[in-house]
Design a protein around this nucleic acid. Sequence first.
RNA 1: GUGGCUGUAGCUCAAGUGGUUAGAGCGCCGGACUGUGGCUCCGGAGGCUGCGGGUUCAAGUCCCGUCAGCCACCCCA
Length: 429
Amino acid sequence: MQGQALPGFRDFYPGDAALRNQIFGVWRDVAARYGFEEYDGPPLEPLELYTEKSGDEIVGQLYEFEDKGGRRVALRPEMTPTLARMVAARAPALKKPIRWFSMPQLFRYERQQRGRLREHFQLNMDLIGEPGPLADAEIAAAAVDVVRTLGFGPEVVRLRISDRRVVAGLLGHAGVPDGMLSLAYGAIDKIERDPPGVLADRLVAGGLSAAIADRVLAVGRLRGQDALDAALAEVPDGADIAEDLSACVGALADMGLGGFVDLDLSIVRGLAYYTGVVFELFDAGRSLRAICGGGRYDGLLRALGGVDLPAVGFGMGDVVLGELITGAAPAGARAAPLDAFLVAVGSDDVSHVLALAHRLRDAGRRVEYALKAQGLGKQLKLAAARGARRAVIVGPDERARGEVVVRDLTDGGEQQIAVERIEDALANV
RNA sequence: GUGGCUGUAGCUCAAGUGGUUAGAGCGCCGGACUGUGGCUCCGGAGGCUGCGGGUUCAAGUCCCGUCAGCCACCCCA
């Protein structure tokens, strides 16, 4: 075997491309229904766009090199810096809130695993300029509606949602100093992966007492509104810090999406820049990686682009979503069937088939015909294999009468149709 | 970047402890079938057994390296 795609990169054969187009179609459909406008930026960006604010550790995962002009450049690993630049450049002229989405191909030089490649397409939906919880709910609802539109219900997909302000408040009450919040987040983020003893040891090693470490893990185990309310009741201004999260969850319930929502304080998200509501979309069986992740990142636009606008958004990759779809329907997406397969009975009929085929294609019909002289049976076999709904048979006898035979390939019925009415005959399903 | 497992036809997989010409199903091509498809039957093509080296009379099989895939870590999209 020679000549294959680079590790972590994909060849899209027709079946794969069909799946990708299905995903893209749903993404665009949902974005449009939420009033989002599409934007895009360059796949290649200056290296500094990612190193200056995102942290140097990202550089190790960048496809970066020097171009022929001596510039340090990188394939984009995420869309947010580009978005920040574009928004900042025209922020004064843009009506707020800004609803923008994009479907960039992103690149990251990492060792690939299932559901995680070196390249993927990612739906980014961002709502900029609105700090309130209805904006958070709007974004989370859009993420849920993508999987709903694909036919998945709450028994298949779960939205796990939390709020960093709530977690921070509870941790502060538990005795975690501000400087150790990220340490605590790290432990909470791993709460379902690592055993409690390991996590507690890590927290103690980081400088927390054993008692506080236990309380940190207890915060991470909070699930559901009742448990959260009970925990917040012990914090002086507990109700206030959870106001936005409660409002967001309530809004999702008003939308009829409450069945998808799991309040889950173990969701903190790895990225440091999230400041409020955070959420992830998972398959209910938890056999896949996260389908989507997002949250509120007030402050990031100021750091990246210089304009101080609140923002909330999510990213949803095509890889895990594709696995969810193919896992649910192993049959997979089929290529669009033909409206008709044109059959020439004899060699004299070929030129008539060519003329008719072009007429039908101009009329928007999807048609195909045999590209070499073959027997009638052979051509019908090809028609069936191609998934054509009908065969249009052109032979000397019919031509003499100005007609063609339209054969329905699903039930075998045939009828004679005048050539000039063939477009109409193929139009009705 | 670290560690473990796995690489046989386009796909899914076979080939007891090394043994002579690496097989099957599906798919593909052709024929039965030059004015009627799906089914059936018959035939055919398709393999440097991922690649390179080593051990051996003999390697798909054992050893080393390398590349790729999967899994875990790391990191997260």
